[in-house]
C-alpha cells in the first residue's frame, strides 16, 4: 500500500523558506573568512524573519532543515563542522524561544539577531572547548569572537528590518 503524504500550505511555505536559507548558507560557505569560526551568518536573517512572521516553531523547522540540508550539500554531514553548526543553531533557537516570551514590545529584529548571534558563538565555542581544543589559551579568542558576533548581529538585524519593510 502506498503511503501518500499530503503536504499542507504550511509545509510548502516552510520548505520554500528552508530552501532559501540553505541557498544563502551554501553561498556564504564559499566566502573566504579571516579566522575559522567567523561567518556573517546571513542565513540567520531568514530564521529571524520567519520567527517574526510565522512564529518560533516555524523558525525551528527552517533553521534545522537549513543546517541539515546545507551540510548534506556541502558534504559535512555529521562531521565536526556540522556538529558546530547544529550546536550554534540549537543555542540560538533556544535563546530566541525565550526572547519571544518577553511581554510588551520586546525585542525587534535587531535585538533578536544580536541574541541569536551571541548564543550561536557561545554554543559553538563551548563545544569547541569541551570537545576539540580543551586548552586555556582558547578563552583569549572568545572576546574577539563575541565582539564580531555583536557587530554581525547588528548588521543582520538591520538587514532583517529592511527585508521585513519590503515584504507584502
Amino acid at each position: 500500500m502506498a503511503l501518500v503524504l499530503q503536504p499542507g500550505r504550511e509545509d510548502i511555505r516552510l520548505a520554500w523558506l528552508a530552501a532559501l536559507a540553505t541557498s544563502i548558507h551554501i553561498l556564504e560557505s564559499s566566502l573566504p573568512t579571516p579566522l575559522p569560526g567567523i561567518k556573517p551568518g546571513f542565513a540567520n536573517i531568514i530564521t529571524i524573519i520567519v520567527l517574526l512572521r510565522f512564529g518560533w516553531r516555524s523558525a525551528v523547522w527552517v533553521s534545522l532543515l537549513r543546517v541539515t540540508a546545507g551540510s548534506l550539500l556541502l558534504g559535512t554531514f555529521l562531521s565536526p563542522t556540522f556538529m558546530l553548526s547544529l550546536t550554534g543553531a540549537l543555542c540560538s533557537l533556544s535563546i530566541l524561544g525565550l526572547a519571544c516570551q518577553l511581554p510588551g514590545k520586546g525585542f525587534s529584529a535587531i535585538g533578536l539577531s544580536i541574541l541569536a548571534a551571541l548564543a550561536h558563538i557561545c554554543g559553538q565555542f563551548l563545544l569547541a572547548y569541551v570537545w576539540f581544543i580543551p586548552h586555556q589559551g582558547l578563552w583569549g579568542l572568545l572576546p574577539v569572537l563575541l565582539s564580531l558576533a555583536l557587530i554581525l548581529g547588528i548588521m543582520n538585524g538591520v538587514i532583517c528590518n529592511k527585508v521585513i519593510a519590503r515584504l507584502p
Binding site: 518577553l102 510588551g104 514590545k105 525585542f107 525587534s108 535587531i110 535585538g111 544580536i114 547588528i154
Partner: peptide, 9 residues
Amino acid sequence: MTRADRLLL
C-alpha cells in the same frame, strides 16, 4: 530599535 534592544546592546 525598541527599549529592550537598546538595553541588550
